[in-house]
Amino acid sequence: MKYALVTGASRGIGKAIAIELARELKYNILLNFNSNLKAAMATKALVEAEKVHCELLQFDVADAKSSENRIVEFQKNNPDAEIEVIVNNAGITRDGLFMWMKPEDWHSVINTSLNGFYNVTQPLLTAMLKKRYGRIINIVSLSGVKGNAGQVNYSAAKGALVAATKALAQEIGKRKVTVNAVAPGFVNSEMTANFDEKELKKLIPLNRFGEAEEVANLVSFLASKKASYITGEVININGGLYS
């Protein structure tokens, strides 16, 4: 059975990606979430409505041991499962001016977005390389390519993930495993719920926030065989705000 693993997939962009990969590419879904079981169960039902299997994997991507244990446990219990797609979507924000930023707000954001990429991807990479096929897609951010005041920690984490995307793509391209990043701008989700949309959309040429499903459509393309000659790229999806 072929699977796509999506981290942070119980809500928002991750949820939309999981559903789209099931609908469009018919992947069975490994749905990672950290704490919100109710939301994860609701997303699982929507994924399985697309006539594929969805398995919940509860772990904090920032916790290396927990991440590895859950992944290894799944592989042990499902020896016929092939994880062809990894979408590193899990991320958190702890916004505030850098001069007043607490150490825990710095480290928690770095640990989730950047270390989470390592903790999830590295244990799965050998199997992809042996099979000579795979898709690794990292969800970064406008903050990671442009920088954003009040988000030095988030910009640092996502900017580092952009660099990691480009470097890993060069390492493993010969094995036909692609690595790309998707950088959303302002997208309607819980993460942007407190943003002043009326003011911010004035800065956006398309004059609106994006929808999670629009990001999911791009991720689905990159996860497909149609994107076989695209690797090491960072694709902005921000309504023209920045390129």
Score class of each variant (00 low, 15 high):
D60W: 02
N36C: 03
A193N: 02
V72M: 03
L25T: 14
K166W: 04
A183E: 07
K26S: 12
Q58H: 01
I86M: 09
K130I: 07
S189D: 10
A216Q: 12
G8F: 00
N207A: 13
E24G: 08
V177T: 13
I139W: 03
N119A: 08
F221D: 04
E214Y: 05
A164N: 02
L125A: 05
E171W: 04
R175E: 15
G14Y: 07
L46Q: 12
G12V: 01
N194F: 02
V6E: 07
N115Y: 01
N34L: 10
N119Q: 09
G173L: 14
V187N: 09
P79K: 14
S143M: 05
S141F: 00
G159P: 09
F221G: 06
S143G: 03
G159I: 01
G144L: 08
N89A: 10
N34K: 11
E20Q: 14
I17H: 11
I19S: 06
G240S: 12
I204E: 06
R11Q: 15
K158D: 07
A156G: 03
V120S: 04
M128D: 08
G12C: 08
E190T: 13
E50I: 12
K202T: 10
K2I: 02
Y229T: 04
E233K: 15
S113E: 02
L142N: 08
A193Y: 03
V152T: 11
I71Q: 05
H107D: 10
S66K: 07
S189Q: 08
I237S: 12
G239P: 12
S189G: 08
Y27W: 13
R135L: 06
D80R: 07
N207E: 14
F59R: 00
P79M: 04
A193M: 05
K146Q: 14
G8D: 03
N188L: 11
F209D: 09
G96N: 06
H107N: 10
A16L: 12
K15C: 11
V109G: 01
A18H: 06
A167W: 10
L241R: 14
K51P: 00
L56S: 02
A4Q: 01
A90F: 02
F195Y: 13
F74V: 12
L25K: 15
Q170W: 00
N111H: 13
R94N: 09
Y229M: 11
I139L: 15
G173F: 15
N89S: 08
A42T: 03
T7K: 02
E213N: 15
N77M: 14
E82S: 10
N153L: 06
Q151V: 01
